[in-house]
């Protein structure tokens, strides 16, 4: 397993996560549907996770694994956040019959 992971140069992992992150950002910027935006946010999150794991493997070898543990925490928190976020979306949809975020522009003074 160690060999397979390290067979790929670190740069490739960085590029992959940069691309995933950019896709996420673009998705959030261009899409109007709240659910899609939500998914894009998750994408960005996982791009970061990937980066963390890769760096952990390349820099600490087999001895250190704190970054990987850190990733598990991010996943757990993300899962909790998804639950809350989806619940909010659900309520928004019930009240407005729409998931278009341009419709939700009343959050101002």
């Amino acid at each position: 397993m160690q060999e397979i992971v390290q067979g790929v140069p670190l740069q490739h992992y960085i590029w992959l996560s940069a691309i995933l992150f950019s896709i996420g950002v673009m998705g959030v910027l261009y899409r109007r549907n709240a659910i899609i935006i939500f998914m894009c946010v998750e994408l960005m999150l996982n791009a970061v996770n990937l980066m963390l794991v890769a760096f952990s493997r390349y820099h600490s070898g087999t001895t250190g694994s704190s970054a990987q543990v850190f990733v598990f925490f991010i996943m757990a928190v993300a899962a909790a956040e998804v639950a809350v976020g989806l619940a909010i979306l659900m309520m928004v949809y019930r009240n407005t019959k729409s998931t278009d975020i341009d419709f939700l522009n009343r959050l101002k003074f």
Binding site: L29, I101, D102, L104, N105, R106, L107, K108, F109
Partner: peptide, 12 residues
């Protein structure tokens, strides 16, 4: 306060 439009898109 006029900067705050309430438009999430713009914020992001």
């Amino acid at each position: 306060r006029t900067i705050q439009t309430g438009n999430v898109d713009l914020y992001f």
